[in-house]
Measured scan of single mutants.
Amino acid sequence: SAEDNLGPLPENWEMAYTENGEVYFIDHNTKTTSWLDPRCLNKQQK
């Protein structure tokens, strides 16, 4: 699965689903949400 390739979410991040079944990500560090997987963003920065 995609999660196996990317590994676990960063600390204090949570994956959630909208009512429509779309995946989004919650950053409890900054109390924000994102459509972008933080694991993908980390890979792009390196």
Rank of each mutant, 00 (worst) to 15 (best):
1 S>K: 15
1 S>R: 08
2 A>P: 10
2 A>Y: 10
2 A>M: 15
3 E>V: 08
3 E>F: 11
3 E>T: 12
3 E>W: 05
4 D>Y: 04
4 D>A: 10
4 D>K: 10
4 D>I: 14
4 D>L: 09
4 D>E: 13
5 N>P: 08
5 N>T: 11
6 L>P: 10
6 L>T: 13
8 P>K: 11
10 P>F: 03
10 P>A: 03
10 P>D: 02
11 E>H: 14
11 E>G: 09
12 N>W: 07
13 W>C: 08
14 E>F: 03
14 E>M: 05
14 E>Y: 04
14 E>G: 06
15 M>V: 12
15 M>D: 04
15 M>Y: 05
17 Y>K: 15
17 Y>H: 13
17 Y>G: 06
18 T>S: 12
18 T>K: 09
19 E>L: 10
19 E>D: 14
20 N>R: 13
20 N>M: 14
20 N>L: 12
21 G>V: 02
22 E>T: 06
22 E>C: 07
22 E>W: 03
23 V>W: 05
24 Y>D: 01
25 F>H: 01
25 F>N: 00
25 F>V: 00
25 F>M: 01
25 F>W: 09
26 I>M: 12
26 I>S: 02
26 I>Y: 02
27 D>N: 07
27 D>Y: 01
27 D>P: 00
27 D>K: 00
28 H>L: 05
29 N>W: 09
29 N>D: 12
29 N>E: 12
30 T>L: 09
30 T>S: 11
30 T>Y: 05
31 K>Q: 10
31 K>M: 14
31 K>W: 06
31 K>H: 04
32 T>I: 13
32 T>Q: 07
32 T>A: 07
32 T>P: 00
33 T>V: 06
33 T>N: 04
33 T>G: 01
33 T>W: 00
34 S>E: 02
34 S>A: 04
34 S>V: 01
35 W>L: 05
35 W>S: 04
35 W>Y: 15
36 L>N: 07
37 D>M: 01
38 P>V: 01
39 R>Y: 01
39 R>N: 02
39 R>A: 02
39 R>D: 00
40 C>H: 15
41 L>P: 12
41 L>E: 15
41 L>G: 15
41 L>R: 12
41 L>K: 13
42 N>Q: 13
42 N>Y: 15
42 N>S: 14
44 Q>H: 07
44 Q>A: 08
45 Q>C: 13
45 Q>E: 14
45 Q>G: 10
46 K>L: 04
